[in-house]
Write a protein that binds this DNA or RNA. Structure first.
Lengths: 113, 113
DNA sequence: TTTGAATACCTTGCAACACAAGGTACTAAT
DNA sequence: ATTAGTACCTTGTGTTGCAAGGTATTCAAA
């Protein structure tokens, strides 16, 4: 049996994963390993097996594109870039996140009664 | 093709559903239909087919129990109550939510650079 | 007394998707 | 040529949200 909390943290992360990735790419192009690293730095831990398929999905949806770039060391890197359409959608996700935050805060405060 | 935003709002909600329900029950016992109603009021829309299995799962995990109570109108209601164990876990989820919020805010602010 | 409306419960089957595990490939140093 | 480091990707499994459909109770009107 798994820890309920751990399991639920995972659940929560899932919901905001696409949003997080779009946010990161909105400030500059990054390659997959680097995105994973950046997410880890803000305690949003995500596995490779989650990230790669997700990036591919977002590319198929037209939110991202990519270009190959030489690495100073090791194999070439696939730098992902957000598209104009991606930025449009990101604005919507910003709103969705704000709405969700407000919702949770409402319940939290209401439950102090 | 589905709306990306709508789809993602759903994703985000998913992550916090258990948390939301525990929050609501922490402030008082409620029956399923009432929980769904309260969530809707704060724009966290959730289907019956999601809620009932979830309540059953949380009960099995020992976070909730329930009692039957007569309704002034219609069939009897199953009032769910949070257990001590449930409150413990809720504290952990509070922390998880705060951590996630902080993470997102970090990325958001960082991406304004 | 049966029909309908409102309320409340629950289950089934499908689809989405995160992740663990395993795999390929390129570069540089030993 | 072997190893270490980096980077890419795929497969299989399990979880779980949801749409749709189903059961049961109460009350009021026909």
């Amino acid at each position: 049996m798994e820890s309920i909390i751990e399991n639920n943290k995972t659940q929560m992360r899932r919901g905001v994963l696409e949003y997080s990735i779009l946010l990161i790419l909105a400030s500059g192009d990054e390659y997959a390993s680097s995105i994973i690293q950046k997410l880890k730095e803000v305690d949003i831990i995500v596995a490779e097996g989650t990230t790669y398929p997700l990036l591919i999905r977002l590319k198929k949806l037209g939110l991202l594109t990519y270009r190959w770039e030489e690495s100073p060391q090791g194999p070439p890197r696939k730098y992902y870039m957000i598209t104009d359409y991606g930025r449009e959608q990101l604005a919507g996700l910003d709103a969705a996140w704000d709405e969700l935050s407000r919702g949770i805060e409402s319940i939290r405060n209401g439950s102090k009664a």
